[in-house]
Design a binder for these strands. Structure first.
Length: 884
RNA sequence: GGGCGGAUAGCUCAGUUGGGAGAGCGUCGGCCUUACAAGCCGGAUGUCGCAGGUUCAAGCCCUGUUCCGCCCACCA
């Protein structure tokens, strides 16, 4: 038998086994396998990114699921891939260029894109290798990239189809503009932060009148673009002014005063300045009331020629200047502190500037309908279900999706403009000439698509769509999507819409929404906050298995994870525990007989029947937990069984047998010990793939890898309540004796004599048959078990349900110590008894509670009474002895 | 403004149809007992945020409330 090293060193085995699995092609999905398909598509990480805690959690959970299902014999496919991450990647490369003193515009679009591809080539493999380091069992042969040829084709196909159906349109509209990235953003890409700013009260004189309107605004610099002033139609203060005009200060432009019920009379002075070019709602008001639109800023958010003397000034500098000018001319009434939400770019944090421009949009309402329905009718289920509410709320109030970006890295929109006749041509195949006027003087739209547009097609584009591939036929819809709630709208919602649109089927049956890994203060980990815990460092320090197990054990539904290193260290210890338990097994089994487990169950000893029962209970719990995505419970059940049943008790119980060839259960014990360990390894493998493979390979086996072995199945025939109850009684007795030893400060080395007075013949028989456990686990030299034992004169006593335990301590016993110990126990017993009595005296309880509960309470009551009497009589005896 | 989540042992957190409050870490006492000191044995520790209600019975269900976190939203 091959042995294990004395200590577990994860570093020595991880790469070895990962390579082995790859070489053996265990992760490659089959198109011929008849088994039920089970597919997960990876949330594609940014191709140039590197692994952070969020990735780690996300991919570990996916790997647990896919390994579990693979072992269960399903036809599994975990599709990997990466995302081109438009703005994010472009920003990275722009920064690199900036270091060389180059602006992207200096080198032009083509060369810039080449540069990005180069960077992708250099760094694109990093995240993939890190995923492999986690043990991710993806089908790497099928790895995809959102900008590879096939997926680009899918993007074009989808875009053109949607356009032709009128679900994509082009429009001049006010959008969120990032003055730094120089691009439009969707509503989701704007993040709002609470900022303490100012509310400025400006004076707008009414034309041909002595009256003045006081107007509150947070953005005085936009006044240059004001084209109207609005009041609430029911506001008595201003009713008479509706239809009149005000003279805009500094600009001296006359603009109309009009009424709209949107205006809140309570806010500020109840008068709203309207700047259609620089505020989304003002834009709507402008359309509604046919106001002029005056854009006063350029794409850098500097004032433009419409701003007159302010031209060229940056927007916030301009604000100061305008305030100074207004103040000098007596138009600034007052300034108040004001806290409000300010939007900034989710990629570069620059303040967003609303801007009117020509953009492409997806008409989302029609797509959202079926996406809502599919969740309502359960075609797609979200775990935990509370997220369904959030999903519905967003979907039901969905707004059109701005999909064009004025950047270079991404899928260029397949639209062409005819320079001669102005026709817009949208085609899957690049057109040679204008369909309308026939000229070849056409130019492709320079905008690219929002990264999330290609992501929304991911579950089917990755499987080969628009080709009708075998993969698509077999694996779509996928089984489960595992992701964080932060991209529920960005990604999940949009995949639902596109999947239903193009495949007519939901993209996944289940969505498991996991937590975000946060720092100790509950903050999202991010580089800018420098609160990032690097998974790679942790993995190296504690081992990948320990790291995986930790995140799995912390993956509670509906709650964020605050990661602590102690927890990981704890699971490193767990891995070590498994390692050493396995060492013990390998050191002791030697050559042993194998049996047919199915046939010997009845012949086994109590101990073996118990551990098998306990094992199968653990199996049923773990499978149930995994099937309902209760990862933390699954991890707990495994942990508890391995450490606190198998190691703490079974291995200790089995030792006397292993050391005694003449023991009638000698062969059985060796066999069952090995069998249980082997089963544990399979049960644990999805969570800790490396250590389980390493140990499994050293056990007597027939297969080539635990990765492709069957996942344990619980079988009812192994459940043995009788054995569990009996072992429980033995454990209780042993714990009671150990408790006395501990509390009475009996040195562990000192052997003691034990007498157990059993309350019935059955217990007497049970204890006698298992005497060896007491000798070994209580360090006893002599043990007397009988229903007829008189209490020794000087003895410590332990009271258990089925009898009394006496430890004669002639000469050693500290009466005061023993007295205190028993008194403490008596107090506790009395308290429990009182609560039981109270319940049993309650007529309503007896009348209304289920019989099962009542008899349980009655039994408890009887046991407590008996215990109390015994404790009292013993206390009395000790008192007598002590005074002698 | 709307919605969601959290408040349980010193710390981080479990607790799935309501029926004897748990784990890990920490802590205290004792052990290098030939698988494991990354370990073993034992001990201590909780008005389950607050106030009501339903129930024979509430950490769990209902109502209200405080504090913390998050998401959504067009009050400038």
């Amino acid at each position: 038998m091959e042995m294990l090293d004395k200590t577990f060193n994860p570093e020595l085995i991880e790469d070895k086994w990962y390579q082995y699995w790859i070489d053996k092609k265990y992760f490659v999905a089959s198109l011929k396998k008849k088994a039920k398909p089970y597919c997960i598509v990876i949330p594609p990480p940014n191709v140039t990114g590197s692994l952070h805690m969020g990735h780690a959690l996300n991919n570990i959970l996916q790997d647990v699921l896919i390994r579990y299902k693979r072992m269960q014999g399903l036809n599994t496919l975990w599709m990997p891939g990466t995302d081109h991450a438009g703005i994010a990647t472009q920003n990275v490369v722009e920064k690199q260029l900036a270091e060389e003193g180059i602006n992207r515009k200096d080198i032009g679009r083509e060369r810039f894109i080449e540069r990005v591809w180069k960077w992708k080539k250099e760094s694109g493999g990093i995240i993939i290798n890190q995923l492999k380091g986690l043990g991710a069992s993806c089908d790497w042969d099928r790895e995809r990239f959102t900008m590879d040829e096939g997926l680009s084709r899918a993007v074009r196909e989808a875009f053109v189809d949607l356009y032709k159906e009128g679900l994509i349109y082009r429009s001049n509209y006010i959008i969120n503009w990032c003055p730094r990235c120089h691009t439009a953003l969707s509503d989701l890409e704007v993040e709002y932060d609470e900022k303490v700013g100012k509310l400025y009260f400006l004076t707008y004189p009414v034309s041909n009148s002595k009256r003045k309107l006081i107007i509150a605004t947070t953005r005085p610099e936009t006044m240059l673009g004001d084209t109207g002033v609005a009041v609430n139609p029911t506001d008595r203060r201003y009713k008479d002014l509706i239809g009149q005009k005000v003279l805009l200060p500094l600009v001296n432009r006359e603009i109309p005063i009009f009424a709209d019920s949107f205006v809140d009379m309570e806010f500020g002075t109840g008068v709203l300045k309207v700047t259609p070019a620089h505020d989304p709602y003002d834009f709507e008001l402008g359309l509604k009331h046919d106001l002029d639109t005056i854009n006063v800023m350029d794409e850098d958010a500097r004032m433009n020629e419409s701003a007159g003397v302010y031209k060229g000034i940056e927007r916030f500098k301009c604000r100061e200047k305008i305030l100074a000018d207004l103040s000098n001319q007596g138009f600034l009434k007052k300034i108040e502190d004001y806290t409000h939400q300010v939007g900034h770019c989710y990629r570069c944090k620059t303040f967003i500037e609303p801007r009117i421009s020509e953009q492409w949009f997806v008409k989302t309402k029609p797509l959202a309908e079926s996406a809502i329905l599919s969740v309502k009718n359960g075609k797609t289920k979200i775990f935990p279900a509370m997220w369904e509410k959030t999903y519905f709320e967003w979907m039901e109030n969905i707004r059109d999706w701005c999909i064009s970006r004025q950047i270079w890295w991404g899928h260029q929109i397949p639209a062409w403009y005819c320079r001669d006749c102005g026709e817009i041509i949208v085609e899957k195949v690049t057109p040679e000439r204008c369909f309308k006027c026939g000229t070849s003087n056409i130019e492709q739209e320079s905008d690219v698509l929002d990264t999330w547009f290609s992501s929304s097609l991911w579950p089917f584009s990755i499987l080969g769509w628009p080709e009708q591939t075998e993969e698509l036929k077999i694996f779509y819809p996928t089984q489960v999507l595992v992701t964080g709630f932060d991209i529920l709208f960005f990604w999940v919602a949009r995949m639902m819409m596109m999947g239903l649109k193009f495949m007519n089927k939901v993209p996944f049956h289940h969505v498991y929404i996991h937590a975000l890994v946060r720092d100790s203060e509950g903050q999202k980990m991010s580089k800018s906050k420098s609160n990032v815990v690097d998974p790679l460092i942790v993995m190296k320090k504690y081992g990948t298995d320990a790291f995986r197990f930790t995140l799995t054990a912390l993956a509670v539904q509906g709650r964020d994870i605050k990661l602590s290193e102690e927890r990981i260290a704890g699971h490193r210890n767990f891995a070590n525990k498994i390692w050493n338990a396995s060492r013990f097994v390998l050191l002791n089994i030697g050559e042993f007989k194998t049996f047919n487990i199915e046939k010997i169950t009845k012949d086994l000893s109590l101990r073996e029947r118990w551990i098998l029962s306990s094992l199968h209970r653990a199996i049923i719990e773990v499978t149930r937990d995994l099937d309902s995505y209760r990862f933390n419970d699954a991890a707990y059940h495994i942990y508890h069984f391995i450490w606190h049943e198998f190691c703490d008790w079974y291995i200790e119980f089995v030792k006397p047998t292993l050391y005694n060839k003449k023991d009638p259960f000698y062969d059985f014990a060796k066999f069952i010990l090995t069998h249980v360990l082997e089963t544990i390894l399979r049960l644990l493998h999805p969570f800790m793939p490396f250590i389980t493979e390493e140990i499994w390979q050293k056990l007597p086996k027939s297969g080539e890898s635990i990765t492709i072995e069957n996942y344990p199945k619980s079988k009812p025939k192994y459940f043995d309540k009788n054995a569990e109850d009996k072992i429980e009684i033995i454990k209780q007795a042993i714990t009671s004796i150990r408790n006395i030893r501990g509390e009475m400060n009996i040195p562990p080395g000192r052997e003691i004599e034990i007498q157990i007075r059993c309350s019935n013949k059955e217990t007497e028989k049970l204890f006698n048959a298992n005497k060896s456990y007491f000798l070994k686990l209580c360090k006893a030299c002599n043990i007397l078990i009988s229903t007829h034992i008189d209490r020794p004169k000087s003895a410590a006593i332990g009271i258990i349900n089925c009898g009394d335990i006496f430890i004669p301590l002639e000469g050693i016993i500290d009466f005061k110590e023993e007295f205190r110990r028993l008194e403490k126990e008596l107090a506790r017993t009395t308290q429990d008894l009182n609560s039981a009595v109270k319940k049993l005296c309650n007529e309503d309880f007896l009348k209304k509670a289920p019989q099962e509960i009542i008899s349980k309470e009655q039994k408890k009551h009887d046991e407590l009474i008996e215990k109390k009497i015994k404790l009292e009589s013993n206390l009395k005896k000790i008192k007598e002895l002590d005074t002698e």
